[in-house]
Design a protein around this nucleic acid. Structure first.
Lengths: 197, 197
DNA sequence: AACATTCTTGACTGATCGTTTAGATATGGC
DNA sequence: GCCATATCTAAACGATCAGTCAAGAATGTT
């Protein structure tokens, strides 16, 4: 019926996400986006609405595709405390490379106060994270690998807390603190175990 | 010799800090500052230099006077694990009121990539924090209250990690996660003790 | 091939950004 | 009281901001 769009929307969304991820909302101008995405100003507005809307869509995309992705693999295999430990170790290692930190964490600290939608989106992910960890730990406990007095949902909350702390220290370049903190975390996980791992 | 300044510099610095704290660097304009501080645009530049400089000074002031202040009291008394636990509990309670989160954390996530000075300032505080905790724990251990196999500097790093995670979850309004996470943290601290507390 | 429709383009909007200037005003030493 | 010096005020700087517009180019249907 009419002319079709000559760029891939999702490809451009990813580019926009990268830029917001690196620079934050306020520090990223529409002109920056136009340059980085390689599409015209008007096409950008036409495809994604205004800046706020684009940002939210980027955040959603990030939450669904980038953040904590490895957690899913943790869920599918019959994982235990050893796998949780390995996940945390990988997570910390990742922070050394991810110099831009975490898009979601940036979003929480920069935008949650003036954009209710951003806050809710992030809370949704926190919930998902806790649920996932709780599931793993419950399975663990059912198999007799976790001490019975341990409360899975509490330990799960504790782990979410760790992830957030790790990302802040990672962005701050505090790798030694991270390693030392992880050593303690590791020790703690071992105290939860009903059998050595 | 000449006319003297007719406002209190430090008072204005605190006002500026409040505004940056609430809104971040990029979202706070000079006009915002002029309005909130109640001094003229030029006077602001005359007293504090440009925006970047003012921000750095605000961060310094925050780090010296606001962030983690209660930690000092922890150091002076002969504190033990129970006091550390209480400190963490107070810290969490504070996050419920501090809806603007932590200036330093905002600074790390927003500005550390493009302002080396901001990053270094924050790293200096991380170091101070770890040192303080290490000191308390070492004293603790010397008095025989802490199990001898525990490494004070590692646990200190672990605690710094907790503080950062707490602040993120606090800003995100995740109070239930915080409470559950703290319960676990509490339990862990008790396992470190050579005597019940 | 002609049409309606949609995308693309680049110039443009008024507003706001951080920063600076020139002139008025107030202060302290003589 | 006078002058040197510093602070203050208001206006303005060029640059950039987010967002829009009208005209041209490309497409699918008929």
């Amino acid at each position: 019926m009419a002319r079709s769009c000559n760029f891939d929307r999702q490809e451009k969304l990813i580019l926009a996400m990268e830029l917001f991820w690196q620079q934050g909302f306020a520090e990223t101008s529409i002109s920056d986006l136009v340059g980085h995405l390689g599409i015209n100003r008007f096409s950008l507005y036409n495809s994604f609405g205004d800046k706020q809307n684009l940002y939210r869509e980027c955040l959603s995309f990030y939450l669904d595709n980038y953040s904590f992705g490895a957690l899913d693999t943790l869920l599918h295999e019959k994982a235990g405390l050893a796998e949780i430990e390995a996940y945390l170790a990988r997570f910390i290692a990742l922070q050394r490379e991810q110099k831009y930190g975490c898009f979601m964490q940036n979003a929480v600290l920069e935008k949650s106060l003036d954009d209710e939608g951003v806050l809710q989106e992030c809370q949704r992910l926190f919930c998902r994270l806790q649920t996932s960890f709780t599931q793993v730990l419950q399975d663990c406990q059912a198999r007799g690998e976790l001490l019975i007095h341990v409360q899975p949902h509490q330990v799960a909350a504790f782990l979410v807390l760790q992830l957030q702390g790790i990302r802040v220290l990672g962005k701050a370049g505090e790798y030694e603190l991270l390693d030392n903190g992880f050593a303690v975390l590791q020790g703690y996980l071992h105290t939860l175990s009903a059998k050595a791992f």
